[in-house]
Design a protein around this nucleic acid. Sequence first.
DNA 1: CCGCCGCCCTGCTTGC
DNA 2: TGCAAGCAGGGCGGCG
Length: 269
Amino acid sequence: MPELPEVETIARGLAATIVGKRIARVDVRLKKMAPAPPGVRWSSVVGERVIGIGRRAKYAVLTLESGRALVTSLRMTGRLVVQRPHETDYPGTHVVLGFDDGSRLSFADVRTFGRMRLVLPGEPWDAELGVEPLSTGFTPEAFIGMLRGRTTPIKALLLDQRRVAGIGNIYACEALWEARIRPSRPSRALTKPAIRRLHNAIVDVLERALDLRGTSVDDYVDAEGLRGGFQNALAVYGRLGEPCLRCGAPIVRTVLAQRGTWWCRACQR
DNA sequence: CCGCCGCCCTGCTTGC
DNA sequence: TGCAAGCAGGGCGGCG
């Protein structure tokens, strides 16, 4: 499921292939996946040039020359894949942007949970999103402040995009394991050294996953359709019953904040 | 404001 | 063998 490292990898791939191209065609086959803003037609993006591609939290952001942006949330099974002129559509394609050179950007999602939005200039679409964990704004002190007084389990806080933006279930599990912290611990019960360990672990896990172009446990592929490599480096996620890489105890799975949670009872406290 | 919960959706895995 | 139930989960809206 695409989290920060996966979306960043996709965005970098798209930057290399579609920046500078002009949109020649838009085909929204499933309207709920790309609802047009009130009073705006999707056809209005035809003729616009793509001037940049980036990422905010788990969203891929295509900037158009008018200052508008295409903001895509891939949720679990969404894909953004660039296709050559005569390649057949990627399976499950619901939205297609055709470019002036005949290449296409396909937005595919078998489960149709993903969404693509057309954001108008100045629209504060990301106002509710928290700090980027790989930015200089994510300091240990800022993180300590976020946890202060909060009763919510630390894992639920990591998944809350209003605090730190971009962490999903896989990297929340992995960072908590690396920091040796039990996922259910109330945020306010973490000592400052533990919060600092977790801060380090979040940055470390995300950077290592980014180096390996993300995690492909089942669906994720990048803009070229290639799988990532971090699934081979996972310490706990999906490893039910297998030995903890640190202490050898079997990894357990519980449910926390409606999410499967993999962790080591022996060395995460 | 905060925390919790249900819903959306389909493909794959598991179990009888 | 075949079918049904269970599971995967990000974001959002509703509720207390």
